[in-house]
C-alpha cells in the first residue's frame, strides 16, 4: 500500500467541472488524502513546515490542477518556491523527498492533438520539463502524467468517464503500481496505461 497525497490546486473550484469531479472521486478512494491548496492557504501565505510534514508522510505526490498557460495556477508555483527548500528537498542534506513518486494530473482546454508537438508547437512532454527537472533535483521519479484533454467540451458522460479513469488510476497508485517515468515513455498517458495494464 502506497500512501497517496493528492494536492488539488484550483483557484475557482466552485466553477470547475472537471477538477471538481476528479476531486470528489479522489476523496472517496481509500488510502488517498486530498489536500486543497487554495483552501489551506486562501491568502497565499504558505507555511512551509506543515506542507513539508504532509509531503514526508506520503509516498506518492499527485499534483492535480488545470494546465493554465501551459503551467499551473500561481499558488502551485509559490508552493514549489517555498516548500521545496534548500537543505530539505535538495542540496546538502536535502533528502526528504528522495525515492517518492510525483504525478501531474492535468486538465487542458485544447484537444490531445494540440500537445503532440511538431512544427511550431511543443509536445506536452516538453512543456512539463520544469516539473520533470524539479522532481529530478529532489530525487523523485516523475511519472507520465494523467491528462484530461478538451475539458471544456466534455459532456456529463465524458466527465463521469474521466472521473472513473482517475479513480482507477489512484487506486492503482495506492496498490503500489509503479508507472513509467515521463523520460522513459514520453508519449504515454497514465490513465490509459492503467486501463490497458489493469492493476498490479
Amino acid at each position: 500500500m502506497a500512501r497517496v497525497l493528492v494536492i488539488l490546486v484550483h483557484p475557482t473550484l466552485h466553477k470547475s467541472r472537471i477538477n471538481a469531479a476528479l476531486a470528489r472521486e479522489a476523496r472517496q478512494v481509500v488510502g488517498v488524502r486530498l489536500h486543497d491548496l487554495y483552501a489551506a492557504w486562501p491568502d497565499h501565505d504558505i507555511e512551509p513546515a506543515p506542507e513539508q510534514s504532509l509531503l514526508a508522510e506520503h509516498d506518492v505526490i499527485v499534483l492535480q490542477h488545470p494546465f493554465y498557460w501551459y503551467s499551473s495556477p500561481s499558488l502551485l508555483k509559490e508552493w514549489f518556491d517555498l516548500v521545496l527548500t534548500f537543505g530539505w528537498a535538495y542540496g546538502p542534506g536535502g533528502t526528504a523527498l528522495r525515492g517518492k513518486l510525483m504525478v501531474s494530473a492535468l486538465s487542458t482546454g485544447g484537444p490531445a492533438e494540440a500537445y503532440v508537438g511538431g512544427g511550431e508547437r511543443y509536445a506536452l512532454r516538453e512543456l512539463l520539463a520544469p516539473v520533470d527537472q524539479t522532481a529530478w533535483l529532489c530525487g523523485m521519479r516523475y511519472s507520465v502524467p494523467f491528462v484530461t484533454h478538451a475539458a471544456h467540451r466534455l459532456d456529463a458522460a465524458g466527465i463521469a468517464a474521466a472521473a472513473a479513469r482517475y479513480r482507477a488510476t489512484l487506486e492503482a497508485l495506492v496498490d503500489g503500481y509503479a508507472p513509467p517515468t515521463l523520460r522513459a515513455a514520453p508519449t504515454d498517458e497514465l490513465g490509459a496505461l492503467v486501463a490497458r495494464e489493469g492493476r498490479v
Binding site: 507555511e47 514549489f80 527548500t85
Partner: peptide, 15 residues
C-alpha cells in the same frame, strides 16, 4: 528560515 527561505538567495550564496 521560517517561511520565505525559498525566495531568499542568502542560503544558496552561503552554501
Amino acid at each position: 528560515e521560517l517561511r520565505d527561505s525559498g525566495w531568499d538567495a542568502e542560503e544558496l550564496r552561503k552554501a
